[in-house]
């Protein structure tokens, strides 16, 4: 996302870039935890600990969620690039 070889940024821009990155990542993690718990946890709460099944469901769910994120973002970028060639980039 943000990274290499950028033109000189003002101090404020640099802070804002890192700030944004942290927020985006934190939000993604929060969403992932929320959605995967909805998909994986037994809602009767007879146990206060994660069962083996729940834990491995969460692990797989996190990988899939991440992959879905990447897949969707790549597709959007591709379609955006195909459509908006005139907008530069």
């Amino acid at each position: 996302m943000f990274g290499f070889g950028q033109p000189k940024l003002s101090s404020e821009e640099k802070i804002a870039a890192v700030e944004n990155e942290i927020k985006v990542m934190t939000e993604m993690q929060t969403r992932m935890a929320k959605i995967c718990s909805q998909k994986c946890l037994d809602r009767t709460y007879r146990e206060g600990e994660l069962s083996k099944g729940e834990a491995s469901c969460l692990d797989r769910c996190s990988v899939k969620f991440f992959e879905a994120h990447t897949t969707i973002s790549e597709q959007l970028q591709k379609e955006q690039a195909a459509k908006g060639g005139m907008m530069g980039r």
Partner: peptide
């Protein structure tokens, strides 16, 4: 369970 889930998801 929520805390355990969050911790695990943070690691993953």
């Amino acid at each position: 369970k929520w805390m355990a889930t969050n911790e695990r998801m943070g690691e993953r």
